[in-house]
Structure formats: structure tokens, C-alpha cells
Write a protein that binds this DNA or RNA. Structure first.
Lengths: 200, 200
DNA sequence: GCAGGGCATTTTGTTGACAATTGACATTCA
DNA sequence: TGAATGTCAATTGTCAACAAAATGCCCTGC
């Protein structure tokens, strides 16, 4: 490998994050530096960096001298807290940016939702999860505060996205479209309520 | 150097965290790998790991190929959000553990507060900050959920502790003692209220 | 005097080798 | 037999050298 854009650590982090969030790497799966190094075609240095970062993000658990493995996800006792915090962050972000939302912003959201729709129709879970995250991330990043983005990421990665609650991926899609429609109506409170209802 | 206990990265992280939180390293101060390596008597490897971790924690900002520097602290716009989240986490932790609090637990808290008192009397700001964190951290860690602890740390490090609001370090000490006293009275709601009032 | 381009220095990014630690298995001795 | 200990293989932790990128300086040309 060793490809496209920024430094190796970031590329590896993004790839492994996808693998964990999509479930391709199941909980408990051990991640060894040497084999990852071979898989990505790089040395162990960047791999170590990536594993450290993912551990801090809560996706992996690392024991000193004993390596990393995919974490089990959040315990049920803190789950309600995590949901509440995530709602708070995204609602805050939406209220923060609402007044300055432009037509270009709305079509940027629509573009994400189109990709969402395509993935959902194909039944591609991994891609759908990614678009779901992209949708929510858009609002947070639109605020433009790196600390806010970091806290959001730290929260959402710990809770993992759960898709069992939807009979179909398209149900999830509809929930997101409803948020966009509320924004088009300039109805902040409805948009906040719909956004919060989508987080669970 | 090359000190006492666990692996080098952790030791370096803890030392640098103290330096940043105590203000010894002011915002904007650049941190170069080579000079830190010389200061700690290790190679650049563990230093890089520590800088990466501290950047993720929000204490440093790192630009690709351009190094790390001490971050500016949270922007004023997200400050209320961060405070709210921290209150929520600590109140959650306190409610979670309240029923199972033992006499040993209470004396453990008292021990922390003694050290707090000593530092406050001496006017040692760095040490007082550390005891303040240790007090709050105790409740969170007592829950025993690593994810909760991680989220708390991620929150508190982004907000930094502000001591300008107290005329004296001892005022802060008194606020903490009040929490302990409420716990001794088995008054959960009062303890939660006092704890939340201390977070600002 | 100053704008532009290239060189040198400084700093980070990456690598491969070596050291330390762990856990499992084998061996010994009561 | 079984507990204690020694050894070994696998894995992570650390290091020092090299490569690449960015910044600042100097030099040139106008």
C-alpha cells in the first residue's frame, strides 16, 4: 500500500477505523504490529502510532507489552450517558451554525444524503455507517472549532453506531432526510428535535 | 532522567501534562522532539508517542511536519458546553457509586483532601491543581469503567482548570470539603449539587 | 532596494536493528 | 504428582540512522 495523501499514521488510522466500525474486525480481534506492518507495506513505526491513537479513541484496548485488540464497545451502564453527551454536542453545534447556514451548506448536506441513499439501497452496511457519520460530522465540523470536533469524535467512536434498531437501512436514511427538510423550513427547534431523536 | 515506573511514553506524558496544566509550559510554547529527548534522556521514539497522545488529549496542537506546541485552551464559544459535559459525567459517576460507598472510600477521599489542604496552604499552584484533579478523578475511577474515565479525562484536559475565580486556593479547598461532608451525611442530592457547583 | 530562486539548516517522518518483557512449555526436585 | 523454576519463542519497547519536508537565508538579477 502506502498511498494517496497525508502521513502514514493518518491513512492507517482511517483504514483501521473503517474496519472496526464496519465490524470487519470483530471485538476481541488481536492486532499485531508486525502483521499490520506487512499488510500496509510500511514499518512498525507508523503502525504503532496508529494503534496508540485508536486506543485513545476507544476503539482498541492496549495492554503494556501485550499488544492491542479490538475493544468491546461501551458498557451498558454508561451507554445512556454517552448518548446524552452526543446529543448535547450535536444540538449545540446545530444551534451554533443555524443562523449562518447558506444554500450551499444545504446542498452539501443533500450530497451526503444522496450517498447515504445509494449505500442504503445497496444494503452496504459499511458504507452506510460511513455516510451516517459523515452527515453528523458535517454539522460539528461546520462550527469550525477543532476542540469541538475532537470531543465529538471521541464520543461517537466510543458508542459505535448501532443499526439493529432499524428494520431497514432506509429507515435510518429517512430520519436524516427529515433533519434536512426541517432546516429547509428554517425550523431550528424541529431540526434539533429530529437530530436528537436520531441519536440513540 | 528515565524514571520510576511504567513505560517511557506514560512517564513522559504525565510529566508534560503537569508542565502544561501548571502553566510552566505556556500556551504557544513549541515542543521539539530532539530537545525533549535530551531533557528526558531517551530517544525520539517515546517522545513522539507522548506528543501524539497529548495532542489527542487536546493539550497540544500538532501540524504535520511542523511540530507540536502547547495549545491555547478551549475557545470561549464551546466553554459552556465543556463545563456542562463535565458536570454530567461527574454527577453520573457520583450517582453510580453512591450506594456502594464504604467508610474506606470516604477516608480515601479525605486523604486526597489533606494533600489538597497542604498544597493550598503552601500556595503551591501546580500541586493544588494536581490534587484538585485527583479529587474529581477519584469519583470517576471508582465507577470502574475505563471508557468513562477516558471520556472524563478527555473533557477535563480540554477545559483546563481555572483558578482565577478563587481569591485563595483555600476557597477551592473548602468547596471540595463540602462535597465530602455531604457524603458523610448520606445526602446524595446535596453532594451532586455541591460537586456541580465546583465545576465551572 | 527588492523580488525570486535555490541552497543549507532544522525538524519531523520513516525505517530496520536491537533490547526487554511476557506467556507457554519443558524440566527438575521434593 | 505437582509445585517451582529455567528456557524459549513471540511480541512489544526503544534506539540510532537515514529520508523527506519546511523554513529561513543568501545570492543573484533587475
Amino acid at each position: 500500500m502506502a498511498l494517496l495523501y497525508r502521513n502514514l499514521r493518518e491513512q492507517i488510522v482511517e483504514q483501521l477505523r473503517r474496519d472496526v466500525l464496519s465490524g470487519e474486525l470483530p471485538a476481541g480481534e488481536p492486532l499485531r504490529e508486525e502483521s499490520l506492518a506487512k499488510r500496509f507495506g510500511v514499518s512498525r513505526g507508523p503502525i504503532r502510532d496508529a494503534l496508540l491513537q485508536l486506543s485513545q479513541e476507544g476503539l482498541l484496548v492496549t495492554l503494556p507489552n501485550r499488544g492491542s485488540k479490538v475493544g468491546p464497545g461501551p458498557s451498558t451502564v454508561i451507554q445512556p450517558l454517552v448518548v446524552s453527551i452526543r446529543r448535547q454536542i450535536e444540538a449545540f453545534a446545530l444551534r451554533q451554525i443555524f443562523a449562518s447556514l447558506t444554500a450551499e451548506d444545504l446542498s452539501a448536506i443533500a450530497t451526503i444524503l444522496e450517498a447515504f441513499h445509494t449505500s442504503a439501497i445497496k444494503g452496504d452496511l459499511a458504507s452506510t455507517v460511513e455516510q451516517d457519520m459523515a452527515f453528523h460530522r458535517w454539522f460539528v465540523e461546520r462550527v469550525g472549532d477543532p476542540d469541538l470536533t475532537a470531543m465529538w469524535l471521541n464520543t461517537i467512536l466510543r458508542m459505535r453506531l448501532r443499526y439493529t434498531r432499524h428494520a431497514s437501512l432506509l429507515d435510518s436514511y429517512d430520519e436524516h432526510v427529515a433533519v434536512l427538510e426541517a432546516l429547509r423550513r428554517h425550523d431550528l427547534e424541529a431540526a434539533v428535535a429530529l437530530l436528537e431523536a436520531n441519536i440513540l
